[in-house]
Design a protein around this nucleic acid. Structure first.
Lengths: 235, 235
DNA sequence: CGCGAGATTGAACCTGTTCAAACCGTGTGG
DNA sequence: CCACACGGTTTGAACAGGTTCAATCTCGCG
């Protein structure tokens, strides 16, 4: 518990649950939130089958969420950046159907759901924001389905990079230079491709001067080109 | 407006928003719901870009929801049976990002969102159920992503049929004999396959006595076999 | 009867997978 | 301090699942 960190002063509170709240309401929300010590790389936040107690807001770092099918195949369902909420898929069954793991040192805010649910009865703005966040997740998932179902490997990777880029930008970070903290494996899994394919595509995108990569750091050299690739083009 | 139809007497109210409500609350909910005349086959319920006014509950028939990407490619995102709620992806942007069309004669209940939002401040059970429905949709979408990303064509079709089967069963209908109201094209699109592939797979599943098809009516002859196919197997 | 949308079947093709090998960087223990 | 092991990445070559294109079939409907 780190009492010094509060929603009121959190740099990303405009991306998170407090968006529509006034000062006094934020204080109220803040009072139910628990903040534990940061998770180390590869540490689990929750596992499939765990009782549903709380939803989580990413404060820093990056959390990977994924499911495992009966036959043991892993499916990465998302990479969550600061301000994003995790665990919403657990509400309906009161049990986590998916897992969440830190892919780099990350801190999260724990929001006990029963308290949030009560509070949302009192604060209309909180209720609205929670529902908006869920609605956005539904919408984003549908976009992802389109991506996975209808696009070629090139388009998928380009779209993935553009998506990351704009999410970093909306957090006040650079839109054309950022770290790819996840492994090639995780990316490939998320995009429904083989690792080898992703690796080849990175090489190709570099050859064609769309991007350049140094270690984990990617620089988008030709944003319009890449976005065109993500959209319509086929090769 | 058909005043004779009410949530209180609706045969599927235990699958719909009223699940957790007591009689008086259901009445209240019912009072804000509008019921128009049924939609004909191929009639649109809403279009992408439409202002978000309401969410919809399917009462009878089947509604297909789908998106269209910038480059005009259609992606079917779901087939909605009675009791299911449509339009939840529109809340966050106050605009419909997707389309919904009746694929057979269907009736829907229109639930004006501003009124629902207000009512959900007064009725905790309604708020909870709305959030559960959204949570379930998030979860279902993730399962679908796994299906599209990690499974072979055979597994996809088998899983699709099993999914329909169990949804019909939970509506008190036969779990092993039902109508496939959607076209092969829609199924293929939804599953991320070519029409031809779906057609071939149906033939194959019939040859191997998993199912039999007569016109639009499918009978599942070997439920355990089909579910095994949907799960682990590969050919 | 004949038209047209949807469904089925066949055959060639292509994108992305799989298998295999090598490479690179980092942390660990002798 | 170096050797080595190991996870992650890259590259090459063969393979396969599903697509694409084209032709035919079926059925409902004017």
């Amino acid at each position: 518990m780190l009492p010094s960190i509060k929603c009121q002063s959190c740099s990303i509170n405009q991306l998170c649950l407090p968006v529509m709240l006034v000062e006094s309401e934020i204080e109220h929300l803040d009072s139910i939130i628990q903040r534990k010590k940061p998770l180390n790389k590869n540490e689990m936040l929750f596992r499939a089958g765990d009782d549903f107690e709380a939803i989580y807001a990413v404060r820093s770092g990056c959390i990977k969420s994924y499911t495992i099918s009966e036959d043991g195949v892993e499916q990465v369902t998302g990479f969550h950046l600061p301000g994003e909420i995790i665990g919403l898929d657990a509400i309906s069954r009161e049990m986590h159907p998916s897992m969440a793991k830190a892919i780099e040192t990350s801190s999260v805010c724990t929001i006990p759901y029963s308290k949030l649910e009560m509070l949302s009865g009192e604060i209309p703005g909180l209720r609205q924001q929670l529902i908006r966040v869920m609605s956005k997740e539904i919408h984003d998932d549908q976009e992802l389905m389109l991506l996975l179902n209808k696009k070629s490997a090139d388009e998928r990777l380009a779209a993935f990079l553009m998506n990351l880029s704009s999410r970093f930008a909306s957090r006040g970070l650079s839109r054309d230079c950022f770290n790819l903290t996840m492994t090639r494996n995780d990316m490939a899994n998320y995009l429904g491709l083989a690792v080898e394919t992703v690796s080849r595509l990175f090489s190709k995108l570099q050859d064609r001067k769309y991007i350049s990569i140094k270690d984990k750091e990617i620089t988008i050299e030709d944003m319009t080109g890449l976005s065109k690739l993500a959209g319509t083009r086929c090769n």
